[in-house]
């Protein structure tokens, strides 16, 4: 175990769940710095405490967890956002990942999976469930169907790795299968997310220029 506990902020509008998760993580040696029930409080709490990991619910009543994720990754780049969502809304998950979340877990994940995911997120690793891999794969295919000059594409290796992840193979199984190191598998996965985010930024910039928002 590291000498300093991993610090966490939990953003979730459902009090029973929020406090339950906070208590569970506290009992397992994590330091829960704050909890919040809406976008504004959440973003403020993260800015003032700068935790290692933000556990983010996507369905935040009045506001969206996607917005909160964007604000957090823009203003507090050191904090890693792990999306923990109840109702697997596919589009929202994809948007949150584009906005900078480095992982996604559905709430039905077991306590062990959650702890594991929080540790990985704190170390800057991506937490990729098969479901998320399927989404990302689909998104790149969608972009490839109508490509423009700066559309990012997955390399053949990245596609292979993502497909294996989507079919439930662990990083270790994939490493063995492809005869590459565990770390290389992680890198491939990470790089797909980076490309996705880049595309998102390019899109946003293009939108801003087209609508005269970026005249500086």
């Amino acid at each position: 175990m590291a000498s300093e506990p991993i610090s966490i902020v939990v953003v979730d509008d459902h009090p029973i769940w929020r406090d339950g998760v906070a208590r569970d993580l506290g009992e397992r040696g994590f330091e829960v710095l704050a909890t919040a029930g809406d976008v504004e409080t959440g973003v403020r709490a993260v800015r003032s405490t700068t935790p290692d990991v933000v556990l983010m619910d996507l369905n935040l009543g009045a506001g969206s967890g996607v917005d909160a994720t964007r604000k957090i990754t823009e203003t507090a780049p050191g904090c890693h956002v792990l999306v923990l969502s109840a109702s697997g809304e596919q589009e929202d998950v994809l948007e949150a990942v584009k906005a900078g979340a480095t992982g996604y877990l559905i709430k039905s994940a077991s306590a062990e999976e959650l702890v594991e995911a929080v540790r990985a997120t704190a170390e800057g690793d991506t937490v990729f469930t098969p479901g998320l891999a399927g989404l990302v794969l689909g998104e790149f295919r969608r972009m490839a169907a109508a490509p423009s000059a700066d559309t990012p594409a997955l390399s053949e290796r990245e596609t292979t790795v993502l497909r294996l992840v989507a079919k439930g193979q662990s990083a270790r199984q994939i490493a063995t299968k492809l005869s590459i190191s565990h770390r290389t598998v992680e890198n491939h996965v990470h790089s797909t997310l980076r490309k996705l985010r880049l595309e998102n930024r390019v899109e946003l910039t293009r939108y801003a220029i087209e609508h005269g928002l970026a005249e500086e």
């Binding site: 339950g20 569970d24 369905n59 709430k107």
Partner: peptide
């Protein structure tokens, strides 16, 4: 329905977690 579903999902997930523990 979606907001009700969300609440129900949250409670079910919580029951599952606590029950398991």
């Amino acid at each position: 329905a979606s907001s009700i579903h969300d609440s129900v999902l949250q409670v079910l997930a919580h029951v599952r977690r606590r029950g398991g523990e």
